[in-house]
Design a protein around this nucleic acid. Structure first.
Lengths: 134, 134
DNA sequence: ATATTTGCAAACGCTTTGCAAAATT
DNA sequence: AATTTTGCAAAGCGTTTGCAAATAT
C-alpha cells in the first residue's frame, strides 16, 4: 500500500501531466498543460488533465494558483508564495517578497480564526508591457 | 454632462443596487445583491445586477472581490484590503492587517513591473466553524 | 479478474451578451 | 423623439462529472 490511502495506478497520463508541471516555470493553465502533454501522449483529454491536476494538488505535489477573473494556473512550487499577473499579456510570475511576517501578523489579528492558506496576487503591467505602452 | 464621460441615466435599479452594496457589510455575491434588491424592485433581473455591479466597480464606487474557486463578492470598501474566507461556511470578512509595508516591499522587488492592485485572500476556518469542529 | 483510469460528451456554475421592449432624458 | 437601460433567454467560459471502454494491477 502507498503512503496515502486510496488506490492508485500509474499511467502514462499521470506521469506526463506531473512531469509537465514540474518542468514548467511559466505557470501553465490546464489547457496549456494538456497541449504540452499531447506531444508525448497524443490522445490525452482535457478532462483527464483537470482530473489529474486536481489530484496532484490535493496531494500537495503541485499547487493550483487561483487568479482573479482568469483560469487557474499550476505551479511546481507548492509552498505559499505571492504571484504577479500582468493585466495586459496575462503572464504570471513569482514575486519574491517575504510574506512570512505579513502572514504572521494576519494570523494574530484574525481573532479566533485559523488561517491555513493565503492567495496573494498582485496585478499590474509587467516590465515588457509597461515599455510597449510608451 | 457628468464628471465622467459616457451617457448615464438614473434608474431605480441602479440606485437600489448601489444602495444594497453600500449598506451591506457581509460582502454579498451578485445573487445575494439581487435577492436583496428584489425586496424593493421586485422584477429586477440577475443580468442587470451583474451589469450594474460591473459598471460600479469600473467607476470605483464599489469593489469586486475575486475569491479562489468561489463567486465574486462585492464590497463597499474600495481601497485594497485583505479578506478572509472560511472554507467551511463560506463567510468572507475583512482582515485588518497592514498591507502597506508589504505592498511597498512587493513594488520594489517586482523589478520593472508596475503593481497597481493586489488581491489578498486568506483561507481557513472562522472562529465559529473552528469551534463546531471540536 | 478486478478495480481504477481514461476519453468522450454532456452538464455545471458563474458571468456575459444580443435583442426587443420599457424607461429616462 | 432619441438613446440608454432593462428583462429575458441564450451563449460563454472554465471546470466537473457520468458512463462505457481501455488499462494497470
Amino acid at each position: 500500500m502507498q503512503a496515502e490511502c486510496a488506490a492508485k495506478r500509474n499511467t502514462r497520463q499521470k506521469a506526463a501531466i506531473e512531469a509537465a508541471v514540474l518542468s514548467s516555470s511559466d505557470h501553465p493553465t490546464a489547457l496549456t498543460v494538456c497541449e504540452r502533454v499531447r506531444e508525448s501522449v497524443p490522445g490525452i483529454s482535457l478532462g483527464t488533465v483537470y482530473r489529474v491536476l486536481g489530484t496532484l494538488a490535493r496531494e500537495g505535489r503541485v499547487r493550483e494558483i487561483f487568479l482573479p477573473d482568469a483560469p487557474s494556473r499550476f505551479d511546481k512550487t507548492t509552498c505559499t508564495h505571492a504571484h504577479f499577473m500582468c493585466v495586459r499579456c496575462g503572464k504570471v510570475s513569482d514575486v519574491s517578497v517575504d510574506e512570512g511576517e505579513f502572514l504572521r501578523h494576519a494570523k494574530q489579528t484574525c481573532d479566533g480564526c485559523e488561517i491555513s492558506e493565503a492567495e496573494i496576487v498582485f496585478k499590474g503591467l509587467c516590465a515588457e508591457c509597461k515599455e510597449e505602452n510608451l
